[in-house]
């Protein structure tokens, strides 16, 4: 049983999605996260253990390696893909309420901005940290963030922007969210964003990379 969890974790860390996947070359022909997760559930392992003892720790390793620049985006994405192939077996348990996630994370690219590759990477890594993602997409107006916060009490919010000009809309969104829901935690990021800017607009956290956000959220996990 333990061994199965270790194997799932190894598949996720190295981006081995399923048996048919040729990546990584040294695991060619082996079962991937997909088959092993199914096997684990069939053998009676709980979805919660698969999430907490295999997927989350594996994605944390991946995030740390990315932050240290030991791996690059492609390997991070292969890991996220492997994680998704495992998650697909766990989702029915989340939906039925049998297994709980760490909490909800609402994410979007702010109004006036269409850049989403960074936002998508952050969403994938936070999902890999065990959080349910509510992705509002790009060019998200403040009202839409507000509604999502109201529909999902206790959720955290992540804002992304590409340019200093679109970053200004981040400020507006933070102001409104904080005014109506002072306790909501807002995370900000994107190429032009800095720690100083985060503090200036009254957001709660800034990170230049996804792993920083995953680590920050850990303290709030339910």
């Amino acid at each position: 049983m333990e061994e199965l969890l270790t194997r799932i974790a190894r598949c996720v860390e190295s981006g081995k999605t399923d048996k048919a996947s040729p990546y990584p070359p040294d695991m060619r022909g082996n079962d991937g996260a997909d088959e092993l997760t199914k096997q684990a559930l069939d053998e009676g392992l709980s979805p919660a253990r698969i999430l907490d003892e295999a997927l989350i720790p594996a994605m944390a390793v991946v995030g740390e390696r990315f932050s240290r620049k030991e791996i690059y985006v492609p390997q991070m994405l292969m890991a996220a893909k492997a994680m998704n192939s495992s998650m697909k077996h766990l989702k029915p348990f989340f939906q039925s309420g049998e297994t709980k996630r760490k909490g909800k994370f609402i994410i979007g690219t702010v109004a006036g901005d269409l850049h989403d590759i960074g936002k998508n990477l952050v969403a994938m890594m936070i999902e890999g940290g065990g959080w349910e993602i509510i992705d509002l997409g790009v060019d998200v107006k403040t009202d839409k963030f507000l509604k999502a916060v109201e529909d999902n009490p206790g959720a955290f919010v992540g804002l992304s922007a590409l340019l200093t000009t679109t970053m200004e809309n981040m400020k507006k969104t933070v102001e409104v969210l904080k005014e109506k829901h002072p306790s909501v935690k807002v995370l900000v990021g994107g190429a032009p964003v800095t720690m100083e800017y985060c503090e200036k607009i009254g957001a709660d956290f800034y990170s230049p990379d996804p792993q920083g956000a995953v680590n920050y959220l850990k303290q709030f996990a339910v």
């Binding site: 109004a111 006036g112 901005d113 269409l114 590409l162 340019l163 200093t164 000009t165 679109t166 809309n169």
Partner: peptide, 28 residues
Amino acid sequence: DVSDQYALFALMPDNSCGVRLNDSALMS
């Protein structure tokens, strides 16, 4: 400053190369 994009686009024909500038100075 990226906001000089407004000045730059004021000097190019509308829809130059199919590129448009939005209110936040982002090109699409």
